[in-house]
Amino acid sequence: MLNFHKNHRNLVVTSLLVFVGLSVLIAVVPASEIQRTKPLPSMKDFSKQERAGLNVYVAENCVACHTQQVRNIEMDNVWGSRPSMPSDYYFSKKRLDFWRQSPSILGSERTGPDLTNIGKRQAGKEWHLLHLYNPRIVVKESIMPGYPWLFEEKDASQVSSDEVVVAVPEQFRKGSSRKIVATQKALDLVAYLLSLKQADIEGEPGIKFIPAKKKNTGTDSQTQPSGPDGATLYTNTCGACHQADGKGLAGAFPPLAGSTIVNDNDPELMIKIILQGYDARAEYAVMAPFADMLNDDEIAAIATHERSSWGNNAPAITAEMVKKIRESIKTISQK
């Protein structure tokens, strides 16, 4: 009837029609269904500056190395408190303009960290600017490219008061003593990155993480003391600014090694700084609060690690101590 072997017209038309049919079923219909998803009530649209930053993000093709999707498997729990869902992309995935379509921010490769929650995890503007200028200033082993074309070099006299000067350390400046000033593009990009926070969801999230291992299968849980690992948590949460050697970064992030606050027998101030953030010293960048991101056990583990590393020697901290201070802060703020 169709005689594909001898009738080229039937052959081409049939293969095209079947392909179109399958494509509609597998791509066009699911795509138009899922794009109707509404945003979560807790989400808000990007500001004008943040949207400009998204454009820089796309132009520099950051999506080649950075994903923005928390998969529903245990190992992705470090990138967000819940798996990503279609609503999360309501504002970020819209057509950019007449020439360019909705950006592929989910990504396909994680050469660098996932950025779903980067605004929460790394809330410091100064950190981001340094990192963009040259990532190796703050993360020695990083292989991310620097983006010096998002910055300008200016003489100190030319810098106006509303411009943002980046405190690039001596060895990354190639001998130049001029000031390094962030351009509007750099500020936009940082504003976009800081806006990336996983939206809160009321009640239990519908999707849960699939655990990596069967629970209680071995005897491992009995041989090892349970509780979070302070060193790993430090690397994930604190090391980017205070550095792996605890020495911080002159002009940006204070050292923890030998710090009087860290070595103080009374840990109250130290724990308060972790919980509430810190902006008391003009020569250093602002530290973001971590009360919402870390629980008492985790803060205790990190603080204990900091108090016993890099030559520091101060007594360990327990979760109870953190809990007490957290509660006292709450009661103060309620009054």
Binding site: I34, R36, Y89, K93, K94, S104
Partner: peptide
Amino acid sequence: PNIQNGLGETVIQGY
């Protein structure tokens, strides 16, 4: 252009 908003783009991207 009209099926690329939100995760629609991602479905099309995989395809």
